[in-house]
Computed example of a mutant assay.
Amino acid sequence: MDASGDLLNVVDVEATCWEGMPPPGAVSEIIEIGLTVVDLRAGERSARHRILVRPERSAVSAFCTELTGLTQAEVDAGVSFAQACRTLAAEHRAGVRPWASWGDYDRHQFTRQCRAAGVPYPFGGRHVNAKAAFTEALGLPRRPGMAQALRVAGLPLEGRHHRGEDDAWNIAALVLFLARRDAWPPAPSPA
Rank of each mutant, 00 (worst) to 15 (best):
Q83F: 04
E44S: 11
E74H: 07
R45H: 01
E66H: 08
G78E: 06
G69R: 14
R54Q: 14
R54S: 08
I51S: 00
L70Q: 06
A73K: 06
S46Y: 01
G43V: 06
L70E: 07
Q72I: 10
T65K: 10
G78W: 06
F63D: 04
I51D: 01
R86A: 15
L52Q: 05
Q72K: 07
R50A: 15
V79C: 07
L67G: 12
Q83Y: 10
H49W: 13
G43T: 07
V60S: 00
G69Q: 15
A77W: 00
E66Q: 15
C85S: 05
G43H: 08
A47I: 13
A82G: 10
Q83T: 15
A84D: 05
E74I: 13
E44C: 08
R45N: 12
E74K: 14
S58V: 13
T68V: 11
Q72F: 10
R86T: 15
V79D: 01
C64G: 02
A59Q: 09
E44R: 10
S58K: 10
V53Y: 08
R50I: 11
V79E: 12
A77M: 08
E56M: 01
H49G: 03
P55F: 06
P55W: 02
S58L: 05
A59V: 12
F81K: 03
G69H: 15
E66I: 04
C85Q: 11
R48M: 06
T65N: 09
E56W: 00
R45I: 13
A73C: 01
Q72V: 09
S61Y: 05
L52P: 02
H49D: 11
R57P: 08
R45G: 06
S46V: 15
G78C: 05
T65R: 14
R54V: 10
L67N: 09
C85L: 05
C64S: 04
P55M: 05
A82I: 03
R50W: 01
C64H: 09
A62Q: 04
E44V: 14
G43I: 08
A77Q: 14
L67P: 06
F81W: 08
P55D: 08
S61H: 06
A62Y: 00
R54H: 14
C64T: 06
T71N: 03
V53E: 03
L70G: 04
A47K: 11
R57Y: 00
R54T: 15
R86Q: 15
L67C: 03
T68E: 02
R86L: 15
C85K: 03
C85V: 06
V53D: 03
I51P: 01
P55E: 07
E56L: 05
A82E: 12
R57C: 11
F81E: 02
S58F: 09
A73L: 05
V75Q: 03
F81S: 04
V60W: 07
A84S: 07
P55I: 09
R45S: 07
V53H: 09
Q83A: 13
S46I: 14
T71R: 12
R57E: 10
Q72Y: 09
L67Q: 10
A62N: 02
Q83M: 12
S61W: 03
T65S: 15
S58R: 11
E66F: 02
V79G: 05
S61Q: 01
A59E: 12
T65H: 14
F63L: 03
V75R: 13
C85G: 00
S80F: 11
S80I: 02
L52N: 02
A47C: 06
V75I: 14
L70H: 04
Q72S: 04
